[in-house]
């Protein structure tokens, strides 16, 4: 492997998550190296989103360990807030702060968490809002802009924290086809800038084009993990074949 001498940014070991008696994640092992763009695909209910939410500790894992740059974040002494500040997250439902304008959305984390000055926070926020093309809308409230625009602001908000890894939880699933384009365009740009990303997505064409590795999840386990060429052209696992065949058929 080309990664052997690097430390993974995020390493998941034997991750287990149960909701009551339902086993959602069973013994997940998974590594992300700096510069990786990992797309997690799979049918609904296969545990993709739960995996992502466990990585950010929005869900408390039932068992297993998660390492961030070699440090175990499941350890009691690790400050979760410090870790989360370095791992950004973009949600399916955008989750922009409704009581703030677009600009304030991108500034509040920098001021409250990173303790940046107001001026610095504003400059950083504007830099990333410009990158996602939302700089003209800084005075708008979230309910005044469209879904695609909201998601671009949400990406800018995450970027403004200057995270080491950015997690995307189905960022385009709540958007209509026309708006999907503008969000994916922004994400492609991030890939070109070399940001490390883990993306849960149903956009197969996007996954094929941008990812360095594709993870196929099925019923709470990683069924197959490989380069996009192998997954999309030569999958070994029959479940992967079945899933992709159905997907391509739908398209």
């Amino acid at each position: 492997m080309r990664y052997d001498n690097k430390t993974p940014v995020i390493e998941v070991q034997h991750l287990v998550k149960n909701f009551g008696k339902v086993e959602v994640l069973m013994d997940i092992d998974f590594k992300t190296y700096p510069g990786d763009v990992i797309c997690v695909i799979g049918s609904s209910g296969s545990g993709k989103s739960t995996l992502l939410r466990c990585i950010n500790l929005l869900e408390t894992p039932t068992g297993g360990d998660i390492f961030f740059n070699g440090k175990n974040i499941m350890d009691r002494n690790t400050k979760v807030t410090d870790y989360r500040a370095k791992v950004g997250m973009v949600f399916q439902q955008f989750n922009l702060f409704n009581n703030m304008t677009v600009l304030q959305n991108c500034m509040t984390g920098q001021i409250k968490v990173l303790k940046r000055s107001k001026k610095e926070a504003e400059e950083t926020a504007m830099k990333y809002l410009t990158q996602v093309g939302m700089d003209p809308y800084i005075n708008a409230k979230p309910h005044q802009i469209s879904g695609g625009q909201k998601q671009r602001v949400a990406i800018a908000r995450a970027l403004a924290m200057e995270p080491e890894v950015l997690l995307f939880d189905e960022p385009t699933s709540a958007l209509d086809p026309e708006m999907v384009g503008e969000v994916l365009e922004v994400m492609r740009e991030l890939v070109q800038n070399g940001l490390t990303m883990i993306i849960v997505t149903h956009e197969m064409a996007f996954a094929r084009d941008v990812s360095t590795r594709v993870v196929f999840m099925d019923k709470g386990v990683i069924a197959e993990e490989d380069t996009p060429e192998v997954i999309f052209n030569n999958p070994t696992n029959p479940r992967t074949k079945e899933f992709l065949a159905r997907f391509m058929h739908d398209q």
């Binding site: 950010n56 929005l58 807030t81 410090d82 870790y83 989360r84 500040a85 370095k86 950004g88 997250m89 949600f91 439902q93 955008f94 989750n95 922009l96 702060f97 409704n98 984390g109 409250k112 968490v113 990173l114 949400a154 908000r157 995450a158 924290m161």
Partner: peptide
């Protein structure tokens, strides 16, 4: 989602 987004940026 509001709480989760706030937590996700480290609040």
């Amino acid at each position: 989602g509001q709480t989760e987004a706030a937590k996700a940026i480290g609040m």
